[in-house]
Computed example of a mutant assay.
Amino acid sequence: MRIRDLEVREGTLANGLPYYALGDGTPLVVLRWFTPAHTNPTGVARGVELRVLAPLARHFRLYAVGRAPGMVLGTTMADIAAWHAEALRAEFDGPVDVMGLSSGGSVALQMAADHPDVVRALVVAGAAHRLTPRVRLLQRRYTEAVAAGRRGLQHQAVTAVASPTGQALAGALLWLLDPLARPDDPRDMLAFARAEDGFDLTGRLADLVAPILVIGGERDLDYPVELFRETAEGARDGRLITYPGLGHLGAFRSRRFAGDVAAFLAGTGPGEAPRPIP
């Protein structure tokens, strides 16, 4: 399915959560990754997101959902999960399939643990039951720099590129692009980063009662494979798929990604069945 063929409908769910919907089929709520602004993405950011979602739109009616604007410091991940759960209860007649991408995976996991009645099945891609110190540090550097009026996008280079040379080049490019990607009001992303900083379900993995598929790249610099495995093993009904040679962003762009998600949510194993968890 080509991006230009997609019919997109935009709106706002309860509690002010911005979303757009596309595709046909059973509903799949997608909680998007970390974003500078708590609005539906536009321009290049919209294109990047749609390239990940378009293959899934062959199988599902997708609801790409962001965080609510006006988030204040002191908001917790439990607060954010509760707002999402209330919105899904208001929008759908019963439990719905949910997929969280990166930071959206943190929200999805918190919601599945706190509000199991709203999640039928869960896919978490590029996320785990807690952040690593590396992710906390990078998000803190980025959000605090932008909130203070300084360039901060270059701090994201080490997430996207593995080699030191590539990181230096990407960092220089992102430093130049920073003014174009800076939100009008950085307080939303700063509040969310502080909330995610405290996210940790280490002692609550057994509360994840919905079937869950964890997907990650074996070369993810933000989340080691061991952390993906801990999340899948700790849940009551967890599976793990890792993509060899791919990093954090590469996992979402894998040609296997949409098919693996669709097969799991249909109740069957992906084309290459996930390894059983010992």
Rank of each mutant, 00 (worst) to 15 (best):
D79V: 02
R236C: 06
Q139N: 15
P183L: 02
V119P: 02
D237G: 08
R2F: 09
L265R: 06
R236F: 02
R187E: 12
M189R: 05
E226F: 09
A21H: 04
A145H: 01
G259C: 03
R236M: 09
T268I: 11
T159K: 00
H155A: 13
V146F: 06
E7F: 13
E7G: 13
G126D: 00
A81M: 06
D117G: 13
A121P: 00
A195Q: 07
F199H: 15
G152C: 06
S163D: 13
V261K: 04
G203Q: 12
I3P: 06
P278E: 12
L73F: 00
M1D: 14
G267R: 03
L50S: 04
E86M: 05
A235L: 07
H84S: 10
T242F: 07
R2A: 14
V48G: 04
P95D: 11
T159C: 12
F60W: 06
Q110G: 02
G47N: 07
R136N: 12
N15L: 08
A193K: 02
G43P: 02
R140D: 15
A128I: 05
E230Q: 15
A87I: 09
L176V: 15
R4H: 15
L109I: 07
E7R: 15
F264T: 08
L31Q: 05
E49P: 00
I80A: 11
L28S: 02
A37Y: 04
D237E: 10
G166E: 04
R182N: 01
E10F: 10
S254K: 06
G216R: 05
G23H: 07
R182P: 08
H38Y: 05
L190G: 01
H38W: 04
A232K: 11
L22W: 02
F264Q: 10
D260P: 05
R134N: 03
A262T: 09
L169D: 02
G11C: 04
R219H: 11
A232E: 02
D185N: 12
G100A: 07
